[in-house]
Amino acid sequence: MIRFLLGRLLQAVPTMIIVSVAIFFLMRLIPGDPAAVMLGDLATSEQVEALRREMGLSGSLPTQYVTWLSHILAGDFGKSITSGDPVLPLMLDRFAVSATIVVAAVLLATLIAVPAGMFAAWRQGSLADYGLVAASTLLLSIPSFWLGLMILLVFGMWLEWFPVIGYVSLHDDFRQGLMFIFMPALTLILVEIGPIVRMARASTIEVSRLEYITHARAKGLSEAEVMWRHAFRNAFAPTWTLIGLILGGLLGGIAVTETVFTIPGLGRLLVEAIYARDYPVVQGCILFISVIYVVVNLIVDMLYPLFDPKIAQ
């Protein structure tokens, strides 16, 4: 068991290294002197020279990479060109906002979609199954940004139930915060219900064809007991992996939803930095989100033996 966990942990190391190398070199692909590019058009040659030294741009590429990485590992992601603030605290601030929405949405979507998918599988071929599959295929086909705009239009503008612009942290004012978080969270929940229902349904159907389900029935267990005690845990394993991927994927695509609802999250920070050619922030955000994605999937994998003890061997 410990061997499995350690092994999985070690596997993430080369991935992280290659991710950092990829980001480092892609940033170097931007035409022109990175220091000049990073400082923008208005920078003086002294400023550029100072930054070059600070960024360790004097040595060969590998030495430059090592210097760069050591800065990053020390928490120094550089300073934003537009605001002059250090990048890391900026990202952490914004990340809290994005994480609240994403985690809340994935949690609720899972709570709704997994039972729904299992129910559909249990009643395979019934009208309820047909309806659930049709609904999830439909939801799967609606892009989040359009769904968001529609929700904004209906709940925010026509019904005026929720505030259309702005954001208040749950931490500062819980009730107010909920008002602001409602529409974006609803959007993401609806978007993610589709794939989770389908996965939960497919894996439950696959599991329920296996002999140990028949064996459980042959013991005299009721249908509910068979489903809950024998089908659920085994059917949940692949869904669990999907939920991890969705959680990370949502962070990667959060920019879109945050743009729709003008929420000051990490995704919005990234997109605005791209518009403003604020490269230190762009680089920081990409690296940050990728690391979070890797870590989320790592945690998901490490918890996987809970659903499938065989994997830890």
Partner: peptide, 14 residues
């Protein structure tokens, strides 16, 4: 290890 959309976003940014 990059979410698909993020990778595309990054390349487009560059």
């Amino acid at each position: 290890a990059f979410p698909g959309l993020l990778l595309a976003l990054f390349i487009m940014a560059i």
